[in-house]
Design a protein around this nucleic acid. Structure first.
Lengths: 159, 159
DNA sequence: CATCAATAGTTGACTTGTCAAGTAATATCG
DNA sequence: CGATATTACTTGACAAGTCAACTATTGATG
């Protein structure tokens, strides 16, 4: 019989978890949620959301060539409608430039503006710090182990 | 130098991850996201969302006594406004009953209706199956290890 | 070449999550 | 006991994510 787990206490639960799979999936969801909140709290004073930050990172990675709207969505694992509106807001803030593509007029190419690149540069250190903060309790060996376990789960889910 | 990781390939990235902390936080977010989608796909035909399901589970756990609105929020780690409206929709679907509390008229007690309890019962097996599916790639020892690693991260984040 | 399917994106409607500000009821303190 | 603070929500406004349905191109086929 396992002892009362910490997650059980977090959830005010009396009964033990029904299975390891249950405890692991709940723990996964709650841990990711807490981590997400840390990142959002860090980004908040800079006036962008985590989703917007991720889009800008992707566009920085794409460089001069730019990236079509749906390619941004692919890299975020997000559906198309969300991306369109995310880009709408970033364009309104002057952080993204969009232009219909000449060769294939169905596509809309997107770029991070110079202002976005400056913002991203200013955010590199705080982002690194937040990642380090979230993973602070785990020594390197445990971080590798976590990465491995998560990789295997995603492989099973067909990622 | 580490080999090109599977997450790197998922993200179409050329460069290796900047740090173990970076790869682990990104892996955490993406894995939790994939898991969430599995659960939502499973719940969809039953006409409720994952958030609604979690609320109903909590109310089932509370039993006859019912639970005040904000206590539901606590157990979900959600902010108050979201809960109010989640309960609004569940009440509209006939899955939740709410009543202002007699002893402390600031509180609104919530209960799962008999219909909600029947729905939850029908969902127990599919939910178990989805948890098992998500964790299928991990043997028990790895599940325990994952639970332990996630616990330590949450402990560090002050959960 | 005309038609028809596939691709790239946008729009509308709805659920969720967040913050800020407001209301109603209870608790606290001089 | 009466002003004030605290608690428990509720409402409004907006960002985001989801699906279904629509437009505009482009590609593929007879």
């Amino acid at each position: 019989m396992p002892e009362s787990s910490r997650l059980q206490r977090e959830l005010h639960q009396r009964k033990p978890f029904r299975s390891l799979a249950h405890e692991a999936t709940v723990g996964l969801a709650r841990t990711a949620d807490l981590s997400r909140r840390r990142f959002e709290a860090m980004l908040d004073p800079h006036g962008i959301t985590a989703s917007q930050y991720n889009v800008l990172r992707i566009l920085r990675g794409a460089g001069q060539a730019g990236l079509p709207t749906l390619d941004v969505a692919d890299r975020l694992v997000e559906r198309a409608p969300g991306i369109t509106r995310l880009l709408d807001r970033l364009e309104a803030k002057g952080l993204v430039r969009r232009e219909r593509c000449g060769e294939d007029r169905r596509k809309v190419l997107c770029w991070a503006t110079p202002r976005a690149l400056r913002l991203l540069e200013a955010l590199d250190a705080p982002v690194d710090a937040t990642e380090a903060e979230v993973m602070a309790p785990l020594p390197d060996a445990d971080r590798r182990e976590l990465i491995r376990l998560l990789d295997r789960i995603r492989a099973g889910l067909g990622a």
